[in-house]
């Protein structure tokens, strides 16, 4: 019963203060283990001096990090990681279990103390975050509608309906959060991140609780929303095939950046093959060349014409290979 206290209570380690930034200010994060001498900066004073530290992340990036190094209990978790996410770009971080993917995300979001390196954000920056784990708290009565506008003024109902419809969770609007299944919850958590009209969407293993076909559909959805709204996306996955189809850039992480680049080049990279085995690259190659057709909702093939279905087709090649013949669009109440 007391078990949860360690999660968010008492106050988090002080260094996490450094990045947390309500007003969305520009803040380099100083490092070293020392006591957090430097608090958040003054709003007005800070805007112009963006390039104070020499190896500054690309100016256009929504969020970026240089030399990100995390050590926990004497063990290196991340070493010298550089990463940038540009507006409208989908960056996918892949890597085996224990590669530090979630820690990288958490460090970028200011949830982890850094041992070295720096994180910079464009200002202002609205972040929508869907974490890897979302444990429903049964103690708090919340409707889905209420949850979706959590932490901000209650959104008008049509807006909530629209964002839930976007993620295929429209029928859930008046349900209690505590009644949802894992897959339903995942969609609702995504809807909550989307309704903020984020500049940057951060999704840590967003498809963890959905089945394989649902996963492909989820990534297609993210790709479509990105195109419509132009936000940047930082995606974490241990699943290589489906995710990559949507990515502009893939970062292959195993405590450090093994390799990075456009999906195709990463798949060809020897580091990638070393990490995931040669069969991974093969699988990737297969779907790369599967974009001549798509599958409609019944699973029947249809020609690929535009970006969305083109993307979908590459996935559906994998879906057809990996899932049963029934590749229908899963909905929240059906799945």
């Amino acid at each position: 019963m007391q078990g949860r206290e360690g999660l968010d209570w008492p106050l988090q380690p002080p260094a996490s203060l450094l990045l947390r930034d309500r007003a969305g200010r520009d803040h380099a994060v100083p490092h070293g283990d020392g006591p957090h001498g430097e608090g958040p900066h003054d709003d007005a004073a800070h805007a112009p001096d963006r390039a104070v530290s020499p190896p500054a992340p690309a100016a256009a990036a929504l969020i970026g990090a240089r030399g990100l190094t995390l050590t926990r209990r004497g063990r290196p978790i991340l070493t010298g990681v550089d990463i940038d996410i540009a507006p409208g770009e989908i960056v996918t971080v892949i890597g085996p279990n224990g590669a530090g993917k979630t820690m990288l995300v958490r460090a970028l979001l200011g949830l982890e103390r850094l041992d070295r390196g720096e994180v910079r954000r464009r200002e202002p920056l609205v972040i929508g975050y869907a974490p890897q784990r979302f444990d429903i708290d049964h103690a708090i009565p919340l409707t889905v509608a209420r949850f979706v506008s959590l932490g901000r003024p209650a959104a008008p109902r049509p807006k909530i309906e629209a964002v839930l419809a976007d993620v295929g969770a429209a029928p859930l609007i008046d349900r209690q959060l505590s009644e949802l299944s894992g897959g339903e919850l995942q969609r609702v958590v995504l809807a909550r991140a989307l309704i903020r009209s984020p500049d940057l969407l951060v999704l840590d293993e967003p498809a963890r609780a959905v089945d394989y076909a649902g996963e492909a559909e989820l990534y297609t959805l993210i790709g479509r929303l990105r195109t419509e709204r132009g936000f940047g996306v930082l995606l974490v996955s241990h699943d290589l095939h489906v995710v990559m189809a949507q990515s502009d850039r893939v970062i292959c992480l195993n405590r450090h950046v093994c390799c990075s680049g456009v999906p195709h080049s990463v798949a060809q990279h020897p580091e990638y093959a070393r990490l995931f085995g040669p069969q991974a690259a093969d699988a990737f190659g297969v779907y790369q060349h599967k974009h001549d057709h798509s599958h409609d909702l019944t699973g029947a093939p249809c020609p690929a014409d535009n970006r969305q279905s083109g993307v979908g087709s590459r996935q559906s090649g994998m879906v057809a290979a990996g899932a049963t013949a029934d590749a229908r669009l899963p909905t929240a109440d059906g799945g």
Partner: peptide
């Protein structure tokens, strides 16, 4: 009320999105 509620529902989301700060906890 609002930041504390979002902090109570999920501390990391609140922290990442800047809605729940240590000031609220204090």
């Amino acid at each position: 009320w609002r930041p504390l509620l979002s902090l109570s529902v999920h501390a990391d989301i609140a922290a990442a999105e800047g809605t729940g700060t240590d000031g609220v906890r204090l």
